[in-house]
């Protein structure tokens, strides 16, 4: 297995510790002139998303992880699992509801997502930051109320419920931030 020694450490490196893949999201090289070199790293657990601090000394090394990230299209969901297809190889990957997490609320068939694969197994998926989805149901728009500060729950075509301004109607297309689940703006039908 390939390894990275401390002098190859840099931001973005994908490594594994005890069979868990991590990405080095920060690396600070600290070395007092007369003192030992220290590599202060922040490692992001690519499966759980948590971040750990680690300190290494010169000469230590970390195992490289076979992690790849590519664009994959969401195909369909079945029995608590989600199926994606690599847009280049057409290979299909199945993820559990737990692996997809919050992202599942905004998955619509055909949506291009970023899929992370470790040792040929899919481990995480990230939808685009913004998606455009149609409102499936909401209370009728309050007449004349165009204020954006009055909000009401709306149900989107993927089943997700979010808060949107009172003037929104059934059939409207909304731009939504998938990271926060926030309404951004009313949009045109992306298909039209």
């Amino acid at each position: 297995m390939a390894t990275y020694s401390t002098n190859e450490f840099k931001k973005g490196l994908k490594i594994q510790i005890d069979g868990t893949p991590y990405q080095m999201i920060e690396m600070n090289f600290r070395k007092p002139g007369k003192g030992a070199a220290l590599y202060e790293c922040k490692l992001k657990n690519l499966i759980r998303g948590t971040v750990t601090d680690k300190t290494y000394r010169a000469g230590q090394s970390l195992e490289a992880a076979d992690v790849s990230e590519f664009t994959a299209q969401y195909l369909y969901g079945q029995n608590d699992s989600y199926v994606f297809m690599d847009n280049e190889s057409y290979e299909q990957y199945e993820l559990t509801a737990e692996q997809v997490g919050e992202a599942s609320r905004f998955l619509k068939e055909g949506l291009d997502c970023q899929l992370v694969v470790y040792n040929d197994n899919p481990i995480a998926v990230t939808p685009p930051n913004h998606v455009v989805l149609q409102v499936e149901y909401c209370e009728p728009a309050a007449k004349g109320n165009t204020a954006t500060n009055v909000q009401k729950p709306v149900k989107l075509e993927t089943g997700a419920e979010i808060l949107a301004p009172a003037f929104i109607n059934i059939g409207d297309w909304l731009r939504v931030d998938t990271r926060t689940g926030d309404y951004i703006e009313r949009s045109k039908n992306p298909g039209s």
Partner: peptide, 8 residues
């Protein structure tokens, strides 16, 4: 040798 970073 081996000293490389924003300050090295």
């Amino acid at each position: 040798g081996n000293e490389r970073g924003p300050l090295h």
